[in-house]
């Protein structure tokens, strides 16, 4: 079972595809495609945040949108106040991570059960959503940035080159920068998962009692995992905000949390590549379905979520892998059987 990162073919394939898309993409695609694919990239980072904490830490968060929104609003407020985007971008990782650690402290040091965890994370998101919706008045402003309530914050600065506040990125450069971030996040998560820390967290996911009897502090582990996931979600929120140059309370919505869950479930819990695949597939699908105007988003999302839980609980990628393995074994068995029967006949 010993499988180091360097020997994992899937990892190199993903890295290769990522780099290829990052460098060749802007040469091949037009502006519209680039904008479209940038959206997939941002949402992939968001999906990875949940894929990590759920798949490799066993923490099922129903409120990933809380951190996504927090990161987005942090970036918006900070960049409007500061006038450049490098420090705000860092803040959009740090602040949600800190908030995640604080929330995680209450949840994991209290040893809350899974159900309670789900409820608490969901309610936190709900309350963020409610609070931010109520900040429409001019009295709710942080520095130069008005929170704007349900109207959202318009004219968020576009990402600039670090150190030069006037050098804004054009869409192709933004795409490359985001693709770079996605690759770095993927790389870092793979490194974390392959490290001792990551192995222990998988051990905790598999059997908490055993891990704690072996002397690992599962509470501290979980808080750290949760904080990392929160930070990444926050960063994706900042990417979303600067990509749209606009953010509204829907960043905190149930829909946003549900999407992350659906992507990770569809892609397969316990994989990183799967959720990215699911983002591309499902976002593309919802774009196609959305133009039909027959069914609304909530309906589709709910149906997919229920369908996945009931029919495909393993997710797309692991199911495909399982299917391939089964077919392979079936083929092998058939061949063995036919070989055996041939042998048998020849013996007779």
């Amino acid at each position: 079972m010993e499988k180091t990162l360097a020997k994992d073919i899937g990892f190199w394939v993903m890295l290769g595809i990522g780099l290829a898309v990052m460098f060749i993409g802007p040469m091949v695609w037009g502006l519209f495609e680039i904008m479209q694919i940038t959206q997939y990239v941002v949402l992939s980072v968001y999906a990875l945040s949940l894929a990590y904490i759920w798949g490799f830490g066993g923490i099922l968060s129903f409120g990933q949108a809380a951190f996504f929104g927090l990161g987005a609003y942090t970036f918006a407020v900070a960049s409007i106040n500061i006038g450049e985007t490098t420090v705000p971008f860092a803040l959009s990782f740090l602040l949600p991570a800190a908030f995640g650690a604080a929330l995680g402290y209450f949840m994991f040091y209290g040893r809350l059960s899974d159900v309670y965890l789900g409820v608490v994370t969901m309610v936190v998101t709900l309350i963020f959503w409610k609070l931010i919706n109520h900040t429409a008045g001019p009295e709710y402003s942080i520095g130069a940035a008005r929170l704007g309530g349900f109207n959202g914050i318009p004219s968020i600065p576009i990402l600039n080159v670090p150190g030069d506040a006037k050098a804004w990125l054009d869409p192709a450069q933004m795409f490359q920068a985001f693709m770079g971030i996605l690759i770095i996040v993927y790389l870092c998560l793979r490194l974390i998962i392959a490290s001792d820390f990551g192995r222990v967290s998988v051990g905790i996911r598999e059997n908490e009692t055993r891990a704690s009897l072996l002397g690992y502090d599962i509470r501290r582990h979980k808080v750290i995992i949760f904080a990392i996931g929160s930070g990444i979600a926050g960063m994706s929120g900042a990417m979303w905000a600067t990509y749209q140059t606009f953010i509204d309370p829907n960043a905190f919505s149930m829909e946003m949390s549900a999407k992350a869950l659906v992507w990770v479930m569809a892609g397969g819990v316990g994989t990183l590549a799967g959720p990215i695949l699911a983002v591309i597939l499902l976002q593309w699908l919802s774009l196609k379905l959305g133009t039909m105007h027959i069914l609304n988003n909530y309906f589709i999302l709910g149906a997919i979520l229920m369908g996945l839980v009931l029919l495909l609980p393993r997710g797309l990628l692991p199911s495909l892998r399982l299917l391939a393995e089964r077919l392979w074994h079936l083929g092998r068995q058939k061949m063995d059987a036919s070989a055996a029967s041939r042998k048998a006949t020849s013996d007779v």
Binding site: N297, G302, I304, L305
Partner: peptide, 15 residues
């Protein structure tokens, strides 16, 4: 899974 399924139901009902 039952949490996830009921949440799916909730979104489905809103829609």
């Amino acid at each position: 899974d039952s949490l996830l399924a009921t949440w799916g139901l909730s979104l489905l009902m809103v829609g």
